[in-house]
């Protein structure tokens, strides 16, 4: 049984991939402990390939962990969690509308009603008028927005988001961040958010977890005590800049250990 007030609790989660042909094991993440309270917004940052997506897939039940446990609070009704995948994972054979309604279809909602309930989310992510287009007819950023709408349609208790805004331009990204914060605070959701953008992580989150290079561990758990609601100007405040600097140094330290950093860094 998960502790009262926690939405998610991971204990000693390890995971190794096994190479199909050689049988070699590749340790992707190593003993991750995370507690996330209900309604908390937590981001994970870390070097590329350190196991962030892997961890999120384990939380989502798509991959088994090799060791450790994950507990997720079960809501009284509705969906416990939904995932926004890193690369565009819209079904190419469905229109935007069918894609966004898909989660509801999976819950057994009749098609007509599912599409009706999908519409407001399509409007929200600015895709009105594109309902009947196929994914190949959308830009990369539009696909990511449709992806986000698809996850939100099922009204999940916990949102697992794997670099959901990576393909967006700066302006759209800020709009989507604001939308996400609005939904998060209004609907009291828990969010576990992966990003490469340090300022995005700080701006959105209550806590930022910094991961080490592979095998991924949690290097530091940084509480972001900036007041909410946050204005965009906050990104220029000294406290913000200092935290960003700190996280940046943590990550580039990892890169140097990994001999990945460019000589100039």
């Amino acid at each position: 049984m998960i502790e009262q007030g926690l939405a998610l609790s991971a204990r000693g989660v390890r995971m190794s991939y096994i190479d199909q042909s050689s049988g070699d094991r590749l340790l992707a993440i190593d003993r991750i402990d995370i507690d996330i309270r209900e309604g908390e917004f937590v981001s994970i940052v870390g070097p590329s390939g350190c196991g962030k997506s892997t961890f999120l897939k384990i939380v989502n039940g798509l991959l088994p962990s090799s060791e450790g446990t994950i507990e997720i609070a079960q809501p009284d009704h509705g969906r416990d969690h939904a995932m926004v995948f890193q690369d565009s994972s819209l079904f190419p054979w469905y229109t935007v509308l069918s894609n966004v309604a898909y989660g509801l279809i999976c819950q057994g909602v009749p098609k007509k009603e599912a599409q009706k309930r999908a519409q407001p989310l399509i409007d929200m992510v600015g895709l009105r008028g594109f309902e009947n287009k196929y994914p190949y007819q959308l830009s990369g950023g539009m696909q990511q927005r449709a992806n986000l709408a698809r996850a939100l349609t099922v009204d999940p208790e916990i949102l697992l988001m794997d670099e959901p805004f990576a393909a967006l331009d700066a302006q759209t990204r800020e709009l989507m961040q604001a939308e996400l914060l609005r939904i998060w605070s209004e609907a009291n959701k828990t969010v576990l958010f992966i990003t490469h953008q340090i300022d995005e992580a700080i701006y959105l989150s209550d806590r930022v977890l910094v991961m080490s290079a592979r095998p991924g561990r949690i290097l530091e758990d940084i509480r972001i005590d900036l007041p909410r609601p946050r204005e965009l100007e906050i990104k220029r405040s000294p406290a913000f800049v200092e935290m960003a600097d700190h996280i940046w140094r943590l990550i580039s330290g990892q890169l140097q250990d990994d001999k990945l950093a460019s000589p100039s860094a």
Binding site: F85, D87, S89, F91, C106
Partner: peptide
């Protein structure tokens, strides 16, 4: 694999997994 992951992540029934993903991807 990623399309199967999406369907699984939404808890699609095996039947729906087949009709909404496998069947259409195989067309």
């Amino acid at each position: 694999r990623k399309y199967l992951d999406v369907a699984t992540s939404f808890r699609a029934s095996r039947r729906l997994l087949f009709t909404s993903v496998v069947g259409l991807a195989t067309v």
